[in-house]
Design a protein around this nucleic acid. Structure first.
Lengths: 174, 174
DNA sequence: GGTTGGCAGTCTGGTCATCAGACCAAACTA
DNA sequence: TAGTTTGGTCTGATGACCAGACTGCCAACC
């Protein structure tokens, strides 16, 4: 949060969590990381965010231990750490709430268990095998007919195909 | 979010959710509502927030349908609606993540099922009876010895006792 | 009936964060 | 070697947030 008067006095795990992930754009950066976006320019194009703010968010997420900055092929890549991956349930829960109460009520994306194909429920549990798959075992699929096809940047196009979370996306040029 | 360039282009339920609950202080206001804080002055004292910002947050949460403003005894009260109550899993999940990765790793609060006394797990499920209690059926208890006793405003003092979520707190004067 | 006091806001001037867009350095490519 | 891509930094303008002063409403009390 990095303001003079942050949430420090709140002494509450929610407040402390929000000190790390509560700033504008931060959770959307994490969402993109789960979707497999790893590069500065891809995040920039997909989020429509100011370069300075993206730089700052990536640095603070890295400082906080949710992301790891790694050089790959001459360019940096930002990968989720264990602490970052552990944030998935919160993001999933927020997504489900948003589908129900911040849109037209319909599904926009579904998440299915890569192991058995079951579509996970509100709690993230697979109704077929009864486990709670981590993000690495989930396949995200855009719901056809949802309002989910507006953007046309390369990353958005690449994300229209079903794909496994955390696996790197390869944006198509154009 | 109410900025010229919000998250509108993101076309994603997470982005839409964050348009409503993603601003500074908003989730902490909701947290306090779950804890039973209902009055403007109590929120003000417990959150250490600017009056203008609290006014704006309460108005936008009311507009978005998460809170309901109701006159009670000559003063307004802010109560969670169904949409607001449905936000509990996200808040709980964020709290658990924060305990693990944004603090010393220890529990600060526990939530137990009022029906059978079981302490709910990471997913919010009661290990005793197997159900997933809603917030109205949860009792929050501050963990002794956690760093959770810093604040001394009347609301914080009232919240030190175990109490059921959504039940109104009665701050002690002083 | 007038006064007092608490409550729920609004208003104000200053500070901080974010914005769009220009600029820059390093690495790769032709 | 010149140009392009990538990953940033810098700048001036705008908007959000801050602490604190101020206002209007209502109930209780004298």
């Amino acid at each position: 949060m990095a303001l003079g008067t942050g949430y420090a006095q709140q002494n509450c795990s929610i407040a402390r969590a929000l000190e790390i992930v509560g700033e504008r754009w931060t959770m959307l950066v994490l969402r993109d990381c789960f979707y497999g976006v790893r590069r500065f320019s891809d995040l920039l194009g997909h989020l429509d965010i100011s370069r300075a703010v993206l730089t700052e968010r990536l640095a603070s997420l890295t400082d906080a231990g949710l992301l790891e900055r790694r050089s790959a092929g001459g360019h940096p890549e930002y990968l989720l750490t264990a602490a970052g991956i552990a944030f998935w349930p919160t993001l999933y829960s927020l997504s489900r709430w948003g589908e129900r109460y911040a849109g037209d009520g319909g599904r926009t994306r579904t998440f299915s268990h890569a192991g058995c194909g079951g579509e996970v429920d509100d709690l993230g549990q697979c109704p077929v095998c009864g486990t709670t798959p981590g993000p690495a075992d989930l396949i995200v699929t855009l719901v056809e007919g949802s309002s989910g096809h507006r953007r046309s940047d390369p990353v958005s196009l690449a994300l229209r195909r079903p794909h496994r979370l955390l696996q790197p996306v390869t944006p198509v040029a154009g």
